[in-house]
């Protein structure tokens, strides 16, 4: 564990709290992509299946439980509690285009051709692109509530912070995980446009609006 990874994980935690807070205070999941949230549940379940056979640390254990539980809870909020506030007609990204390639890639590029190992790899590839339905929705509507942009910024910061973590681990532990690194770089790259608008507009006190 190093500072970058810890800050990354805390940022990830924060993003989830911000999202739940947004849904509960506005009593609405408007502007949130159900598809992206469903992909995150898939990612966490596929990756954290190792809860059953690999012990890493108490920290790791509780974080995994939290990520699975909170992501399922968010789906519940969107699907049942605040269902009428979700508009499926603007959440139309075809997730098959993300899940399909993630399955194929994980079968080809993995460290070991074993079921749980392939699930782990699949989760890494899927997570890299899971934000796309959300970004696509943002693009379509052209605007977002400020709180939603804070959620996205915290989520993007989490992956961005993992990059210095990998550099640090390379030098201090001689650990290199090319699958995680390549997917992580792609994932962080997807946020660049968003970050640009976030820093130049939202953090200057303006509303998040994309040019028409």
């Amino acid at each position: 564990m190093n500072l970058f990874r810890l800050l990354g994980d805390l940022s990830h935690l924060a993003s989830i709290f911000i999202l739940i807070h947004k849904i509960q205070t506005t009593r609405s999941c408007r502007g949130i992509s159900f598809q992206t949230q469903a992909l995150y549940v898939t990612v966490f379940v596929a990756r954290y299946i190792d809860l059953f056979f690999r012990w890493i640390s108490l920290y790791n254990f509780f974080m995994k439980i939290f990520f699975i539980a909170s992501s399922v809870y968010i789906l519940y909020l969107m699907k049942y509690r605040y269902r009428p506030t979700h508009d499926p007609s603007i959440d139309t990204f075809k997730v098959e285009y993300l899940v399909g390639p993630a399955v194929v890639l994980s079968l080809i590029f993995n460290y070991k051709f074993e079921f749980t190992e392939i699930l782990w790899t699949f989760s890494i590839y899927l997570e890299a692109v899971a934000i796309l339905p959300q970004l696509f929705m943002l693009q379509r509507t052209g605007e977002a509530e400020t709180i939603t942009t804070h959620y996205l910024a915290a989520l993007g910061a989490y992956r961005a912070l993992y990059i210095p973590n990998w550099i640090y681990r390379y030098f201090t532990e001689d650990v290199v995980d090319p699958i995680a690194i390549v997917a992580g770089l792609v994932q962080t790259g997807l946020y660049l446009d968003f970050f640009y608008v976030y820093f130049t507009k939202v953090l200057q006190g303006q509303k998040f609006e994309l040019p028409a």
Partner: peptide, 10 residues
Amino acid sequence: DDDYYGHDEL
């Protein structure tokens, strides 16, 4: 070695 690849990140 099971833990060779680590997977100790979240």
